[in-house]
Design a protein around this nucleic acid. Structure first.
Lengths: 193, 193
DNA sequence: CCTACCGATCGGTAGG
DNA sequence: CCTACCGATCGGTAGG
């Protein structure tokens, strides 16, 4: 009977939107562009979605929710801090590989959110950063990590993991496992001998 | 006599544009926004600048030219590879601190370049990356650096240095010198003990 | 450097 | 899901 389903169509719209926002930016993408990609007129998109803003919100909060719940899980496991941080880095890389476009939008186009949504997103990001920073701090206090400045360590990790979205292309010499392993080596052991 | 000078006005326009593009994106910034910031009507901006595209080009190539010439200089000095890489990292951080808005535009809005300019910018970036990668490779071959995957090392460094633009605010606990020193420690020695 | 515009395109709605 | 359209805004030009 092949009932398409409004929810599935909505999902498709969100996915195509994420790809377009990633390559052209939120402001540079028109509803007509999106319609072209999805295969309907721009006006028809509004049967599945309230507004262009709502599309952005769905993408951004899907990603921030994922990060937040991954952090909560790691916080609850009883493992050394070094291992907790390793797990978070791995999860970052994997989410990037699986949901590259959406992660890219959450990283770059969140600034086009407005009102409450903008505030809520910034809050979520701040909570995540504080939670991650606390783990690093405790790891240093426990003697498991170098006594480096916590903010610098945190943002170096978050950034190192962000480039994956911009530069990594699978099947070009580096496999996903090698990628993970090499990033972990860089961040935990450093480049110098 | 306080002659304003077309060149100075043009410079001011470029600087305000860089700030606006950084915060709202190239596509999200209108010539009317820019006029408001510079203190003239949108139409008047065209007395100092050919088009909105030309503004973007000036900003992007100013940054890429700077990177390219810094690399050329480092390549010519007779120092250990580890030191060359340290110098490049320091220069990246300093340029970010001095020209944050322009660097941000070159990093994020270059994708709105078109035609020849887009090609030329991508080429410049590729040349820079290849040159930097070659130094890492030679450093590994010389036994000065860990045998990590060269691409991963390169992009981890470039990314670690990019976050400065997004997250670092001077006068909030971390001085510029501490910032440099801590990033270098993270990248060269790693977080683990 | 401004006023007065231009054609094009934008996000979104009405009505079917 | 489409056609037809709205008011607003866009980059840019003409003419002074």
């Amino acid at each position: 009977m092949a009932k398409r389903g409004k929810i599935n169509q909505r999902q498709r719209i969100l996915e195509e939107a994420a790809k377009l926002f990633k390559s052209k930016g939120f402001a540079g993408t028109s509803m007509r562009d999106l319609g072209g990609e999805v295969g309907m007129e721009a006006a028809s998109i509004y049967n599945h979605v309230k507004s262009k803003d709502e599309i952005l919100e769905s993408i951004c909060f899907y990603i921030s929710d994922t990060y937040i719940s991954q952090l909560a899980e790691v916080e609850q496991t009883a493992t050394p801090y070094r291992e907790k941080i390793e797990t978070l880095i791995r999860q970052h890389i994997r989410l990037m590989l699986e949901e590259g476009a959406a992660v890219s939008v959450a990283n770059n186009d969140w600034k086009y959110l407005t009102g409450d949504k903008l505030t809520a997103f910034k809050d979520a990001r701040k909570r995540y950063e504080h939670g991650f920073a606390a783990l690093i701090e405790q790891g240093i206090a426990a003697g498991e990590l170098q006594p480096v400045n916590v903010s610098v360590a945190l943002f170096t990790i978050l950034s190192a993991v962000r480039w994956v979205e911009l530069w990594y292309r699978p099947g070009r010499g580096v496999s996903a496992d090698e990628l993970e392993q090499n990033i972990l080596t860089m961040l935990l052991n450093g480049l110098a001998k």
